[in-house]
Design a protein around this nucleic acid. Structure first.
Lengths: 236, 236
DNA sequence: AGCGAGAAGAGAGCACCGCTCTTGCATGAT
DNA sequence: ATCATGCAAGAGCGGTGCTCTCTTCTCGCT
């Protein structure tokens, strides 16, 4: 973390930022598959080969964007969460925040949660930055539990051996049961899933009001996780 | 539907099948992004330009594969379903059948449910073939309801305006309520979602036994849809 | 039976891609 | 002031989707 003493070093980090910014813009416009190292170079007025001084490969550039986007979706989740509010309100706000980010950044969503691009295997190093969004959901449930408000409905129980010990440790301090943890994992998966269906057109002809249906899904999932949620009446 | 009278016509449908078969194999090996029209041509010993006599573009070839794969996953669902069995057993069997097909055909799963490839927009014409898998789930719920076994747990209710009238019509004869329909849509989404997480590595470090966790998810979702399901005890 | 229309295949070519290697310049350190 | 090094550029390789032209051969009709 040395300060950029020399002009060369300053130029280097500056150019790195510009490459990343250009790539980010192209990702937003054409998607991961349409992101071309050559066109980034063109846009910056440099030779394509010069970009390789900054990113060893297209995949490495993509990884940098991946980390950046995980940060953004984490920001969207954390930013939407008001720790002072009631758990149900917080839950809905975070779900909506993540959805809005995804709708505004559909190609970025695809990069994070969609099909891995060609031969690119996402590095697992990004686990900690990737965890911010789901951890925001867990925190809401944890706070609800601490306040004695967490009340998951009855249902099938989860084999404790199905979940990694690390996962239970990660959520330490929140004192979740295995079943509560399992339901949170499902909730995280389902938040991403319902957005994916909307983005990829699987709901065309199925839902008439995507926003209303998303809100419904968010409420159902809150109830599933045991978080009391306000809103439209009960089934039956 | 004329019979292939001439030798030319026979050769044409034969070659079309071979092209499709070669493409299917390459899709299974390298994924949609790695599917190359040129390599298909190479494999069949013909000029790349000749393939264009059969498929106007790579996207058209991809669409043909898409339809084929939708058929396969539909077959997997229908094939796993034993209409004579109890609803809970049927539900689990269909979920497992779809998962097994997906694990054995991960690139095909990605084509169907993952990020749309580059600039390729999936045609909506495939709706009827795409619907077979979710309709299998719906049929189980419908049969359960007819037998008086459908008993969805209380929870948030869905705004009827959020679902298209066509959807309610599509499920006609099963006499589902709006909420039952909404939960089935969620169940369909969630079956695809949990498999996607497993395939794309999002569960690495989270779940220790993917099969057990999937079974848990299937049971939770059956309960959510109101289908009585056998298996491990209740939460709490 | 023969001929014309049209289908099918081959090949060259265009513009693009990721990536590599070599060459030369300009800058920063000594 | 000089030397070593960081850095950009250019050419090039093998690959892609797709188009256009040219030739061959098959099919259907007179």
């Amino acid at each position: 973390m040395n300060a950029p003493r020399t002009a060369r070093a300053r130029a280097r980090i500056e150019l790195t930022r510009e490459i990343l910014a250009s790539a980010r813009r192209q990702l937003g416009e054409a998607g991961a598959a349409g992101l071309s190292l050559r066109s980034v170079a063109r846009e910056l007025g440099m030779a394509s080969s010069a970009v390789y001084r900054y990113f060893a490969s297209r995949d490495e550039l993509l990884t940098a964007l991946l980390v950046e986007c995980y940060g953004e979706v984490g920001d969207a989740a954390v930013g939407a969460d008001d720790p002072e509010a009631a758990p149900g309100e917080r839950w809905l706000a975070v779900w909506r925040g993540v959805r809005e980010w995804s709708l505004a950044n559909r190609h970025e969503y695809a990069l994070l949660f969609g099909t891995p691009v060609p031969g690119y295997a996402a590095p697992h190093l990004t686990a900690e930055v990737a965890a911010r969004m789901p951890l925001t959901l867990a925190r809401i449930a944890g706070d609800a539990k601490a306040a004695g408000l967490l009340d998951p409905p009855p249902g099938p129980s989860c084999d404790p051996a199905a979940i990694t010990p690390e996962m239970l440790v990660l959520l330490e301090g929140m004192a979740f049961t295995v079943d509560e943890t399992a339901r949170l994992i499902l909730a995280w998966n389902r938040l991403v899933a319902i957005i994916g269906y909307e983005l990829h057109g699987h709901l065309v002809g199925v839902t008439a009001d995507d926003t209303a249906f998303f809100d419904y899904a968010a409420r159902v999932e809150a109830a599933n996780s045991g978080i009391p949620v306000p809103g439209p009446g009960e089934t039956r």
